[in-house]
Amino acid sequence: MIGFFDAVVARLADPNRCPAVVQAAVAMDAERTIETLALGADVSAIVSPLSDEATPIRSAGLRVSQVETWIFGVTMALVFPGGFAQWDVARVQIKAALCGWTPEGAARPVEYAGGTLLEYRAEEGGRWLHLLRFRVDVQETYGAQS
């Protein structure tokens, strides 16, 4: 699924789907990327791969095929307390933009897998980072094995 993470970002950056998200980007290291952003009361969404698991291969011939479950994250980043009202709105919009969507090459639609608080500093100008986890099943096929 070449371009999968770019497609996720495009959905989150679409103002018709997620008007509460001010910027969206792909990053391999969400925490490091967040350090480079100017956070505000509106939500920034950083998309990153988290893990993957694969089902066992049942048979192998000229081609090997197996289902992989990709877990990816959307880190919501904003300042506190200014962005407090935006957090829930953006969370709902992000989940609505991704849940049930079947990206090209996916075996099943994207599902919400849970969330985790990464950082919450309540002082003025503090930060709020919350990770939303999603999963999608992908049918991967590999070439001839010897």
Rank of each mutant, 00 (worst) to 15 (best):
R127N: 05
A41Y: 08
V92T: 06
T33Y: 15
V9T: 10
F80P: 03
G115T: 13
A38M: 13
R91L: 07
L62P: 12
Q66H: 12
D29K: 14
A77W: 05
D14R: 03
R32G: 11
A113R: 15
L129H: 09
D42W: 08
I46W: 04
G115V: 12
T75S: 12
L12K: 04
A30D: 08
G100R: 04
P81A: 04
L131D: 00
V22H: 03
T69V: 12
N16F: 08
R133V: 06
A10V: 07
E35V: 10
G125N: 00
A30T: 10
Y120E: 11
E104H: 12
L98C: 00
D42N: 12
E111A: 13
A90E: 02
L50G: 05
P19Q: 00
N16K: 07
E123K: 13
L117K: 10
T141K: 10
A77M: 03
V79Q: 15
R11F: 01
I2L: 09
L98W: 01
R63D: 09
F80H: 10
L62A: 14
V67I: 14
P81Q: 01
G3Y: 06
F5N: 05
T55R: 14
G83E: 02
D14H: 06
L50A: 08
Y112M: 00
A27N: 10
W101H: 01
V64K: 15
P49Y: 07
L12V: 03
G83L: 00
P103R: 01
Q23I: 07
Q23V: 11
D137Y: 00
T141N: 07
V47S: 06
M1L: 09
I57A: 13
A24Y: 06
A45E: 04
M76W: 05
P81L: 03
W70K: 15
M28S: 12
Y142E: 14
G73A: 11
V79C: 13
M1W: 03
R108H: 08
G114T: 02
L37W: 14
G114I: 11
L131R: 08
V138D: 04
D14L: 05
A107K: 15
Q145Y: 10
P103I: 10
E111Q: 11
L132W: 02
A85C: 02
E111F: 03
H130P: 07
W101D: 01
V9N: 08
V26G: 04
A90R: 07
I57S: 09
D52A: 12
G126H: 02
L37Q: 07
I71S: 12
A97M: 01
S48H: 10
Y112V: 00
S59F: 12
A7I: 06
P19I: 02
R17H: 08
L117E: 13
L131T: 02
D29C: 15
R135K: 15
